[in-house]
Computed example of a mutant assay.
Amino acid sequence: MTVSTATRLDPRRHAYRDDLAAESLRDIVSAPRYIAPEPAQVRVASTPLRRAPQATLGYETELVAGEIFDIYDRKYGFAWGQARRDGYVGYCADEALGPMLPPATHRVHDLRAFLYPAASMKATPLGFLPYGAEIAVLDEEKGYASTPLGHVYARHLRPLAERPDDPVAEAERFLGVPYLWGGKSSLGLDCSGLVQTVCSACGIIAPRDSDMQERELGLPLPFPSDFSLLPRGALLFWPGHVALSQGDGRMIHATAHSMTVISEPIEPALRRIEQQGPGLRTLRLLPGAGSRLPGM
């Protein structure tokens, strides 16, 4: 297979292999065959997306309940395809997917929401839905929302049109959640997974990985003379890492330093990270974030 463009396509976001490619890439790559997508939907709380059909490999990213996954191939119990939400390509467990559900009407607002077989807190849970999972509410009974996957306590959900407006406040709800490479659920996530998850909840389209976010998310921001002036909603980028400014000289991030989501003063963190490797490289400002630019 050859790529007929001067710019090499990023395989993380373009569905092509040596033996096939997505139909949408027909005029861009040369492949033995082109496949139209078969849409499926995640039916479990979350499922990892891997770079090859091997369950022993680490996560590249994670799909959460309700996400649409366009399938181009199936083998060895895995489906190879592309997440429709952010375009990420990889292999996920075929058993985690199912036919398309009714269109989503609500989103899980709490960090987790149990799924029950009936509208009763005494029923044995079927599982749970993580923060940000989108689901159709079909009916409501005794304070529980009936969904295609089970009953959910209705107050754990919000209508899709009702979005929070502060990604930093949403990130702060994840304080103490474990760090998980490639994760993006409330059971564990990585630095860019945290940023993408809270941005998505606020209606901000964010790519998955930190290098993508550094290029594409928000607007460039000059380095401040004093990091206490860095506005809330600024993004701080190091090679392979991202954090969110909380304002007043603090930042929040999912970090392998503590293996959790933490809030800490920016200046000491900059010194600690510089002792371990490359220093801070880029600042960007999320859409709609604070209007006060840092002093130069």
Rank of each mutant, 00 (worst) to 15 (best):
V3M: 06
V3Q: 13
L9C: 08
D10H: 07
R12T: 06
H14W: 05
D18H: 09
A21M: 03
E23V: 02
S24Y: 03
D27E: 14
P32V: 10
R33A: 10
R33D: 05
I35G: 00
A36T: 15
P39R: 10
R43V: 04
S46C: 10
T47P: 02
P53V: 05
Q54A: 14
A55K: 08
G58H: 10
E60K: 13
L63C: 09
V64H: 01
A65G: 07
D70Q: 13
I71G: 07
I71F: 13
K75N: 07
K75W: 00
A79Q: 07
G81W: 12
A83H: 08
G87Y: 08
Y91I: 01
C92V: 14
D94W: 10
E95N: 13
P102V: 01
P103V: 04
H106Q: 11
R107P: 01
R112V: 12
F114A: 13
Y116M: 15
Y116K: 12
P117I: 11
P117G: 10
P117A: 06
A118F: 08
K122W: 10
A123F: 01
L126T: 14
L126I: 12
F128G: 00
G132L: 01
I135P: 02
V137R: 10
L138R: 06
E141Q: 15
E141V: 12
K142L: 13
S146E: 15
L149R: 02
G150D: 09
G150L: 04
H151M: 12
L157K: 04
L160W: 07
P164E: 05
E170Q: 14
F174A: 02
F174Y: 14
G176K: 06
S186L: 02
G188Q: 04
C191I: 07
C191P: 05
S192V: 06
L194S: 07
Q196E: 15
T197V: 08
V198D: 11
A201F: 06
A206T: 11
R208T: 12
M212Y: 04
R215D: 14
R215E: 15
G218P: 07
G218Q: 06
P222F: 05
D226T: 07
D226S: 11
F227Q: 03
S228D: 12
L229P: 00
G233L: 04
L235H: 03
F237S: 03
W238Y: 12
P239T: 06
G240F: 09
G247A: 05
D248S: 14
G249W: 04
M251G: 00
I252C: 02
I252K: 00
H253T: 03
A254T: 03
A254P: 04
S258A: 14
V261F: 04
I262D: 09
E264S: 04
E264D: 04
A269L: 01
L270V: 06
R271V: 11
P278L: 11
P278K: 13
R281Q: 15
L283Q: 04
L283P: 01
A289W: 09
R292E: 15
G295F: 10
G295I: 14
